[in-house]
Write a protein that binds this DNA or RNA. Structure first.
Lengths: 144, 144
DNA sequence: CGGCATCCACCGTGATACTG
DNA sequence: CAGTATCACGGTGGATGCCG
């Protein structure tokens, strides 16, 4: 007999897989893109440098905390530069680096795909939801 | 004077922006991609059709619940097909649709970018972390 | 103006157990 | 084999309040 229960083996597999996923560049990047605000911030900066408060206005619903957090993460990854002008009051500008521009291009590709094929996705959803309705099962509650 | 406090105005902006974001195809797609397992599942299926249990094995650490949830979401969006063969025992196959293949291609582009530029990101991170250390501030605790 | 620390609420995620 | 239902936990994002 094995020295582990099935649950223990799955647990171990999970831990290993998690480690694997964390070290995978693709997944790390995906993680970054999925950070709710990163995509928006990059898009906002893709047309040129912006001040902190300009960004706060462009990304209407964001909280100061998340804006800072997002920008710090992007800065750490070398995707944006942070320029402090020690005037009174202080002025901080953010701009994309060449690397960040590359990310913006990637984002544009995603955007293009999304806009091109979104009708198909919408149709598929409606079909799926309609079928689910008729057979009485609730399935997925409309959206996440 | 305004009839709302600053907090109330931000709150309203947040709600409106949320609605805007939800209706934005790009963001919806980004949301999908960010679902921890979607990328992996699509990658796994990109080489051909697989059974439920095969997927469970390929995505080592996934729980049955998340696997089903992920597959259902993809099916709803018309990205994968679900084929039930009513034998004993039951057999269920999942495969990418043409639309899903398109998504897989997109994912490959992301992967390519990630692998090409990840060194730069890593360097940037090390530089950033080193600088933060020397000036005594803790800043970002290594990663998210 | 720009930023950080603290506290808190929510929900996505996973474990567990049960069904056809 | 292929799920579904229920529960519990932890991380993430938001609100608030204080510094430079």
């Amino acid at each position: 007999m094995p020295t582990m229960t099935a649950a223990q083996r799955r647990e171990q597999a999970r831990v290993e897989y998690d480690a694997f996923l964390r070290s995978c560049p693709t997944n790390q990047l995906l993680g970054r893109l999925s950070d709710k605000w990163v995509g928006l911030a990059v898009a906002a900066l893709s047309t040129g440098s912006l001040r902190y408060s300009d960004l706060a206005r462009k990304l209407a619903g964001i909280s100061p905390k998340m804006l800072t957090q997002t920008l710090r993460a992007l800065e750490r990854d070398g995707l944006v530069t942070r320029t402090v002008t020690p005037s009174v009051p202080v002025r901080v500008d953010y701009a994309l680096t060449p690397l960040g521009t590359g990310l913006a291009d990637l984002l544009k590709a995603v955007k293009r795909w999304a806009e091109t094929h979104f009708d198909e996705v919408r149709e598929a959803r409606e079909r799926y939801d309609a079928d689910s309705d008729t057979d009485g099962t609730a399935a997925v509650p409309a959206d996440r």
